[in-house]
């Protein structure tokens, strides 16, 4: 037991311990603790206004915590930013660079702020983000996607062990998001740890190994993404040609729960595409049997749809569990 503990400690690249932040009289962050291990993609999930950005800013010394500490590779970020931040590359919110300088000049600017970054390294990161064609143009001529890539290039300059990206998919088109996801995976495979924040569970699900969920300034769960998603549960939507008949059949069974209109948080767009659909919670494996049963009863099925678990649902589950336990 002790031995594994020590080993996992050595693997921890970012350790956040009991962070708390008051602004004025208000407590913005109550209690945030988690560890990010070497080589993993760690998600940081929470709705807007939950304290995500404030926490991220405390990770990189933009905001001083009221209490608690942040260790990167064992160095305290607040006390020794000049040591701790050597291991960190980050983009907080949007990748803002100097618009009146070229991409290359921006990279030179940030390279000068850390010892040991050579011209070769700058050229390398430009290649990594595939910006070589436009790197000598002024940043004000760049598209958002290119700024994003330049931001990542800047973050990679110091060959950091930890890359922090705050809502990296914001404003990107689907193609850009897909590329970014692949890129992040590639970085993780090369041994880098990544810390990625998002308010979308699906994003985290697609990208991350482990996740911390924050709500109301508090981390309410830390664990592997798969486990947490399983907890969230999902709905099965049925659309029939004769909804009344279908509903009667479903209601007749004990192991299907019918969910009324106001009781779920399913995306409006999805509901609109399945008019008159009946929302149920049921065992995934029983769906084929149910289909046979409807067919036998002469109720024709127009569509069956299983929803992806949403962050809101997961929150409900997690906070319910807390109040019960």
């Amino acid at each position: 037991m002790d031995k594994t503990r020590i080993e996992s400690d050595r693997d921890v690249i970012l350790s956040v311990q009991g962070l708390k932040k008051n602004i004025g009289r208000k407590t913005i962050i109550r209690n945030v603790s988690f560890d990010v291990r070497a080589g993993e993609i760690f998600g940081f999930l929470g709705p807007n206004g939950s304290g995500k950005t404030t926490t991220i800013r405390m990770l990189v010394d933009l905001i001083k915590p009221t209490s608690g500490r942040v260790l990167v590779c064992g160095e305290d970020v607040n006390r020794h930013p000049e040591l701790a931040l050597r291991y960190v590359g980050c983009i907080v919110e949007n990748p803002e660079m100097y618009p009146y300088l070229t991409g290359w000049e921006n990279l030179e600017h940030f390279a000068r702020m850390q010892e040991g970054i050579t011209r070769e390294r700058i050229r390398e990161v430009v290649d990594i983000v595939q910006m070589d064609k436009r790197i000598h143009d002024k940043v004000k001529t760049y598209s958002l996607g290119m700024r994003q890539r330049l931001g990542i290039a800047q973050a990679l300059l110091g060959s950091p062990g930890l890359l922090i990206l705050d809502e990296p998919t914001n404003g990107l088109d689907p193609k850009g998001i897909k590329e970014l996801r692949e890129f992040i995976r590639k970085l993780a495979d090369s041994g880098m740890s990544l810390f990625i924040s998002s308010h979308l569970l699906s994003e985290i699900q697609l990208m991350c190994d482990r996740v911390a969920i924050i709500a109301g300034g508090e981390v309410i769960a830390v664990g592997s993404v798969d486990e947490l998603v399983k907890q969230a549960g999902s709905y099965t939507l049925w659309q029939f040609d004769k909804p009344e008949a279908g509903l009667r059949l479903l209601e007749g069974s004990g192991d299907v729960a019918i969910v009324g209109d106001g009781e779920h948080r399913i995306d409006e767009a999805l509901l609109a595409s399945l008019p008159g659909a009946i929302v149920t919670v049921m065992d995934e494996e029983s769906i084929p049997e149910w289909i046979e049963r409807f067919v036998a009863a002469g109720v024709r099925i127009l569509a069956v749809h299983k929803t992806a678990p949403s962050l809101e649902e997961l929150f409900l589950k997690l906070t319910e569990g807390e109040s019960v336990g």
Binding site: P81, L85, V88, C90, E96, Y98, M113
Partner: peptide
């Protein structure tokens, strides 16, 4: 106002 301070102050240099 341009937000570049976030890049500037997250580099390993004391403020």
């Amino acid at each position: 106002s341009t937000g570049t301070i976030k890049m500037l102050l997250t580099r390993p240099v004391r403020r």
